[in-house]
Design a binder for these strands. Sequence first.
DNA 1: GTCTATACTCTGATAGAC
DNA 2: GTCTATCAGAGTATAGAC
Lengths: 206, 206
Amino acid sequence: MEKKGSQTAPVAKSDREFVLAASARLFRNQGFDRTTVKEIAEACGMLPGSLHYRYPSKESLLVDLMRLALEQASRSVSIAIAGVSDPVEQLRRGVCAHLNLLVGGSDMVYVLLFEWRSLCGQSRQEMIDLRDRYEALWATMLKSLATQGVIRGDVDLNLLRLIGLGALNWVATWFHEGGRYSVEDIGNFVWHLIRVAVVSDSGQFK
Amino acid sequence: MEKKGSQTAPVAKSDREFVLAASARLFRNQGFDRTTVKEIAEACGMLPGSLHYRYPSKESLLVDLMRLALEQASRSVSIAIAGVSDPVEQLRRGVCAHLNLLVGGSDMVYVLLFEWRSLCGQSRQEMIDLRDRYEALWATMLKSLATQGVIRGDVDLNLLRLIGLGALNWVATWFHEGGRYSVEDIGNFVWHLIRVAVVSDSGQFK
DNA sequence: GTCTATACTCTGATAGAC
DNA sequence: GTCTATCAGAGTATAGAC
């Protein structure tokens, strides 16, 4: 950790991500408060003292986790919609990307969205700001669709974003891998719902 | 508490509801884990020892709170849709009733929906069952609408319920009294969204 | 960087007087 | 039924050896 200048530390980065991924898994399953630093350290194959070397407090770990989660989310959505010319298809991919972030691989985005209440004061505000920045991605996307005339002019874009993301976020509370619906099923359903309701030239439900 | 048979105890019931309402407010604002029994007792104008007379443990209080929340929710939705002949209007009222439960007066439904992760084992399962029973109300309502031909036959009612309630539930995470949108604004928006997308003879967005 | 050991705080729950 | 007083346990954070 002392040498920062000479080496771009890929090892340290992986290390950080490993610790945060293990933490995220625990936070998601048990909640931040019911997870002890001992458990976190255990999951990382170390002891509480070692963990403290990286993060001075449990809260600071959560903050760093959420920062990484936002980076992941922003990157995933950006990649998902990049290079897609059809704006409606862009929306569909964005929806699926968000769902995958929540119920797929990483638990960090889940923690970012559901565990911000565990923070107080300054940290809390910073995390709310991070959430807002992620949502701003969506605001931009929707604005663009409206400007192009894809979304009808009588639709409140702000409410659409809030309600749409809310519908997606809640999926994380009931989704089970291998359950009745796949991520694609759900993503397409929500996309159809939105498309039929707000897209100018939408046809029938399916 | 000894006499149960001779008197139907309205006083005891109010007392219970007072304690649970105060607890719900705290749980909503701080989370279950970050709320101490001392704080709860304080909010009720008593001391921890007295609270223990009513509930042997903090968890048992939460369980009782959630039971009451479910009763409230079921009652509210039932009342809201009772005597409404138009099925589409029935849906609109149901949506608004659910929203009001979440962001209006009582905090208990919020706690029921967001704090079930604080429970473990048997209690947790009981609460999940309670949640399911509330959702069953909605399943019945949607089924009825579909049977009457109001909702198109190609719509998955189960997914519609999950996604719709999810969209509504998430509102509780960002809604502010006196903010940009009123409960009615949001309720109508969601209702429009659903109506246009799934109701057979829906017209335009507004 | 990781370990051992521990200090200090807070909390949920209890016992028993009134 | 409510109070005072307290216990036992858990948890975060720290100190310091290696």
